[in-house]
């Protein structure tokens, strides 16, 4: 299984070949609260590292999800349109947001690994 990497904006990314799956972390969904809508980019959309990749809406507010790496969207999670609460119940599995054809795999390996992310989150409390 491919290794997961994490960002300071609380996204996770897992690279399999040239395509990476991206979602938000369990910590992020806890902070957001009940997710009621996810605005996802269409396949074919080019996204830039640090740019807006998606918007996740809780009852209370809309939050931007930033692209952890640059690339092209190949698929967005159609399940989330029917069941946005998947982001809460399965943030780091079935509640993934998009699959991205990664422009530069080095951008992925440069991100935090699980241990570094855990340390980062622990430091937020």
């Amino acid at each position: 299984m491919a290794e997961r990497r994490f960002t300071k904006d609380h996204e996770w990314i897992e690279l399999n070949g040239a395509v990476a799956t991206v979602g938000i972390t369990n910590y992020a969904q806890e902070q957001l609260g009940d997710v009621v809508f996810v605005d996802l980019p269409a396949a074919g959309k080019k996204i830039t590292k640090g740019g807006e990749a998606a918007v996740v809406e809780s009852v209370k507010a809309a939050s931007e999800v930033y692209a952890p790496v640059s690339g092209e969207v190949v698929e967005s999670n159609a399940e989330l349109a029917k069941n946005p609460a998947l982001v809460n119940s399965a943030a780091e599995s079935g509640g993934w947001f998009v699959k991205i054809k990664v422009a530069d795999p080095k951008e992925v390996s440069a991100l935090m690994d699980a241990a570094a992310y855990k340390k980062f989150v622990d430091g937020l409390h």
Partner: peptide, 12 residues
């Protein structure tokens, strides 16, 4: 308090 552990949907 903006919400308790139950969350806004459950509270609503």
């Amino acid at each position: 308090p903006v919400q308790y552990p139950a969350g806004i949907l459950t509270e609503h």
